[in-house]
Computed example of a mutant assay.
Amino acid sequence: MLEWQKPLEIPSEIKASAPKLHGQETEGPISHILASPAKSIATVKGKVISVSPATTKRVQDNDVPFQELVVKDSSGQGTLAIWEDMVTTINHGELVKITKCRVRLFNGEKKLSTTRQSNCERISHDDELDDISDDEHRDDPPTGNMKNGVILAVSDMDPYLACNKPGCNNTKLLTVLEDEKYLMHCKNCNAKVAASNAGHYVRASIMVEFEDSQKNWLSSSPRLSSCLNLKIKNGMK
C-alpha cells in the first residue's frame, strides 16, 4: 500500500539562487541578469535613462532598424538593444518591462538585446523604480556581484581608436586617406572622423584570481581599463 507523502517545500531564497536551465526565462535585478551566462533569456524591468538615435544595422544582407537604450533599476543599469518594430516606441524616463531579452557579450561587456518574441509593457507606477534617478553612470558598475581578486597577468593588450556611436559597440576604426587627409573609418556605420574625434578603447586578456581561488580570463572594456589605470594616447598605451 502506498503511503501519502507531503510535497517537499523549497525555500524561496533557494529557488531564487538556483541556476536556470538553458533557455529558461528569468526575471530579477538588472545586475543579476547581466551576471547570467551569455545567451540567457530574461525579462528586464527598469527605468529608461538614455535613448540613442534610431539607426539600422546590416543583418543577413538586410538593413534592420536598431536602437540602444540604457535601462536602470536599484541594482544598476544595462545597455539594451531593441530591434525592428520596437525602435522609436520607447522614450526617455519611461518605466518598462521587456520580456524575452537575450544576454549577449560585446567586446567583453555583457549587454541585452530584444528578440523576435520580446514584448514591451509600460509601467505607470512602481514604488522602487519611481525613485530611480535619470543619471547615467556608465563607468560605475553595479557592485552587488563584484568579487575581490588579484590580477595575475595581462596579455594581448590592444588599445585602439573606436567609433563613438552607441550602435557600433566600440568598433575598431581603420585609417584611410581621403582628399590628402588621413581619417578614421568605421566599417560598421561608414562614418569618417579625425583621430582627435574618435573614442579610445582597450582590449586585453586578464587573468584574475578571486577569493574562492577561481581564475578567469576577462576581456577588458573602458570600465575595466579605468580600474587598471591605463592611459591611452593616439591609440597607443
Score class of each variant (00 low, 15 high):
208 V>Y: 01
124 S>G: 11
109 E>K: 10
175 T>M: 15
213 S>G: 05
122 R>V: 04
104 R>T: 13
124 S>R: 13
107 N>M: 01
128 E>G: 04
128 E>R: 06
96 V>F: 01
104 R>N: 12
131 D>G: 03
163 C>H: 00
174 L>C: 12
169 N>C: 06
210 F>N: 09
115 T>E: 14
193 V>G: 12
167 G>V: 03
143 T>F: 06
155 S>T: 12
183 L>H: 08
209 E>H: 00
107 N>G: 04
184 M>Q: 06
102 R>M: 08
122 R>S: 08
114 T>Y: 02
100 K>S: 15
183 L>W: 10
141 P>D: 04
137 H>I: 04
217 W>H: 15
200 H>Y: 12
189 C>W: 00
200 H>W: 10
174 L>Q: 15
111 K>Q: 13
203 R>M: 02
223 R>K: 14
103 V>H: 00
193 V>A: 11
122 R>K: 14
163 C>D: 07
147 K>E: 15
217 W>D: 12
140 D>N: 10
150 V>W: 14
220 S>V: 07
150 V>L: 15
112 L>T: 03
197 N>Q: 14
193 V>Y: 07
149 G>S: 09
109 E>P: 02
96 V>S: 00
155 S>A: 10
130 D>K: 02
114 T>P: 05
105 L>N: 10
147 K>I: 09
97 K>D: 02
215 K>E: 13
194 A>T: 11
199 G>D: 00
181 K>F: 09
150 V>T: 14
197 N>P: 06
186 C>V: 03
177 L>P: 01
134 D>S: 07
96 V>I: 09
162 A>D: 04
213 S>A: 10
163 C>I: 00
188 N>M: 01
129 L>G: 02
217 W>C: 12
185 H>W: 07
132 I>Y: 00
95 L>N: 07
172 K>M: 12
196 S>A: 09
210 F>A: 08
169 N>T: 06
148 N>F: 10
157 M>S: 09
220 S>P: 07
218 L>N: 09
138 R>G: 13
147 K>M: 13
213 S>P: 05
187 K>P: 01
97 K>W: 04
150 V>E: 15
147 K>S: 12
143 T>A: 05
94 E>D: 15
168 C>E: 03
153 A>Q: 15
